[in-house]
Write a protein that binds this DNA or RNA. Structure first.
Lengths: 107, 107
DNA sequence: TATGGATATAACAATATAGTTATACTATAA
DNA sequence: TTATAGTATAACTATATTGTTATATCCATA
């Protein structure tokens, strides 16, 4: 995954509430109203956290009648993990600076 | 890794600048002055990003004369990846709500 | 010891984030 | 069609984040 996209996903995951949501969704799909008693925040706050995860592509939503169920995008979560362990090769950054004579040589 | 700590690490990694720093440090140790021409931000900004990574335990610093070199804590980075793929079991959260009669049953 | 280079910290500004309450929207059911 | 439950959005506030410039600190060396 590209660095910018990966950073976006990591930022979405980098919040205790959202990470706990992900952990719960790993267990099973959940509807918004199930999250409300779990977290000590208002329903709109829950909704916004879920939207943040959705925008990052980490969850999908699925309306069933008046309820909206959220599901974990396991593939995406796995991609983030893999992205972390296989960060893109950025050695060319130093090479390019070297070519422009901008690379600092310490000591 | 505990959820709160994991979220802290993910938040530290969830910034394009810091993630690119991590990618560069995966290649080799770098001193602060080497990062300056890479990113379009001031030296104090570089310094603060590195401190954020250090506080999260993702890098270590090592002074050599007037230079400060930063090294990737590969073990920690790996732990974060593993933490993501093996999120703690939180099924007890629903169980406890169930016991208190607070669990919502949709549909 | 004085000077200068490398890095960190302080003080501040602009923007992003995460929460709130109020309200709008959507679907079910009376 | 009206009322109600579940969810999302709007408007706002407080705090966190990320950058800046100015300055302090640390170390090598003239």
């Amino acid at each position: 995954m590209e660095l910018k996209k990966l950073a976006d996903c990591l930022k979405a995951l980098g919040d205790p509430t959202r990470l706990e949501m992900i952990a719960l969704l790993k267990h099973r799909d959940c509807c918004v109203c199930e999250f409300i008693p779990v977290f000590n925040i208002s329903q709109p706050a829950i909704s916004k956290h879920l939207n943040r995860l959705k925008v990052a592509g980490l969850v999908t939503e699925n309306r069933k009648g008046q309820w909206v169920f959220y599901s974990l995008n396991r593939k995406k979560l796995e991609e983030v993990g893999l992205g972390l362990s296989h960060l893109p090769d950025v050695t060319n950054i130093f090479d390019e600076l070297e070519a422009k004579g901008l690379l600092v040589h310490c000591e």
